[in-house]
Design a binder for these strands. Structure first.
Lengths: 188, 188, 188, 188
DNA sequence: GATGAATGAGAATTCATTCAT
DNA sequence: TATGAATGAATTCTCATTCAT
């Protein structure tokens, strides 16, 4: 019954916490639910994570790391012979295909920094990590950061509206905006 | 004790709810706090808004409407003699200057749709409203929607990282991305 | 929309109240639910039935009356050529066949008199009504009342245990007890 | 403030719950009242009995056990030299003498199974327990169960109508019904 | 007469956290 | 070190009832 010696418990609790957020949202993250999800006594969760915020923190750190790892994988798999825009389309489409629960979960944790100051460094790290990756394909830092913002905005647009993310559609949006310099200032 | 007759109470409750979200976040939106904020009995809030979700709904509807009105104001004030990019810079800077609490509040409600299905139509309305406005300045729908996504992404980037939003910096990001068509696929 | 003139509303409310008790139990009988069930404004239920107890009262009065009417129908349909025990079996079986919700509802209201003094006269009326009917087939009042008790006890036994009420089984129980005089005092 | 260590608390809560039902009825069984009755903090009742149903369950289990123990005591005290009917009269009269609050309480909990499915096994256990006891004095199972039903019905009749339960009267009813085999089918 | 609004009380639950063991 | 028990605060929600219209 009682796992007297259980060195990975902390990690297992983090993973349980992430599943709990996925299921019940950030508001629904409680010691009790994590304990139940990890099949561990309640006291154990409060022992390893004294406060609810500690749990939240650890959850964001973990998903952020995993998400960034995924982005790096994408970056390393880029085919130089393929237009970069198409690689961006692939990134977005992969994130939005299948059930979107994972993407929603990641964004929910990431955006929680909007309110919780303590999470902002964590969120910034994700953002900067992506920008750094993108920087290898952009002429300057500003463009890389803007591209990161665009990707976030597009992801959210699909997640918020529940619209299908067809590759033609994504492609249209990306090419539209990326080549928009002349367009939006027609008077020029 | 209090007014037995109070025809505007419902609206006052909505405004109180928005202030509560601003102060305590969405998780902190409770009937009790709204009652206290609006100075009405607790039962009155549950009478007008049977569930917490009803309250949340009304709050998003209201801020969404106000935000869209602000965007329209901006659009109507656009000076055709000024490069459109600069008008976009102005929009972002105005939203991010001063204390950012209002912007955070609006985004928090807007992004709540990520988890709460019921709010998605509301969020989509905001998004589409902005895209419609922008459409007057873009060659096609896709570009308008992409531009809306970009603006969201940029707003979030500043809000999440707590970075200053200088007009030069914003300008750099916008011009970088808008003219990025050639750049990101240098080989072409 | 508003039924300005609606003379049968009181009766419709009673019937709605009975349905509510059937669905939610006596504890679940509330003005609100009755209003919803009868599709009538809340204020209308409190107007016609000032208190919850009034509603409960009316509901018991009505089901008691209907139940007694059913019993009388049974009594009048008794075939003199058939052993009376078989007619009792028929009565029980009919009450327990199909879904037992109606029977449960009637007993729930009837037994509420156990706690609510005010309902006792009503319950006594049902009991005495049945005893009076049975009296036509028993040698004296005491036997009639005892038979009424037996029938109640048997009904409850089947309702409480959820057991099937086969006619052979009921018959066995009835004949066992009715001829038990000699048996239970074997020494006599 | 109160005892941090209190090993019998659970049991004390059950007893408090039974007193609360006795005082306020099943509908009146609330965590709050139990807490007050047992003089423990509200949170303690919800800790030990997460839901109102758990409380109800425990209360019925306890009274059922006690009631059955009483019945066994009666059975063991039966005098073989006395007609069994008189022993039945004694059982009923003892249960109905003095204040009938205990009897009402027991029946209220027992009959709650009518609505609450989850309580039915508990109620069935009481019923079967009594039938088993009676079986030692009846020729077959059916008669034992019918006798149990008769006793229930008689108890309820007195409890519902508030009539005095004189021993002559009870005796008359019992002998009437037990010897009714010939009577109710006079034509036979 | 009829009714929508209002109100205050109280319901079940859930919880973070503390503490004795 | 780990943990079950305990606690007090807060949550949503439902309600009977009252009252102004």
């Amino acid at each position: 019954m009682a796992r007297r010696y259980d060195p990975d418990r902390r990690q297992r609790l983090i993973e349980a916490a992430i599943r709990v957020v996925g299921e019940h949202g950030i508001d629904g993250l409680t010691h009790r639910r994590v304990a139940a999800e990890a099949d561990v006594p309640l006291g154990s969760t409060t022992y390893h994570f004294a406060s609810r915020d500690d749990l939240l923190h650890a959850a964001l750190r973990q998903t952020g790391k995993e998400w960034l790892a995924g982005a790096e994988l994408w970056e390393r798999s880029i085919d130089p012979g393929v237009p970069f825009v198409d690689e961006l389309v692939r990134l977005l489409q992969e994130s939005l295909s299948g059930d979107r629960r994972r993407a929603r979960l990641e964004y929910e944790l990431y955006l929680a920094a909007l309110r919780h100051h303590a999470l902002r460094p964590q969120a910034a790290e994700c953002l900067d990590g992506l920008a750094t990756l993108l920087r290898r394909r952009t002429p300057d830092d500003a463009t890389a950061r803007a591209l990161a913002a665009l990707l976030d905005g597009l992801m959210l647009q699909f997640l918020l509206t529940d619209r299908e993310a067809g590759s033609q559609e994504i492609r249209g949006m990306l090419t539209g905006i990326l080549g928009a310099a002349q367009v939006v200032t027609p008077g020029r």
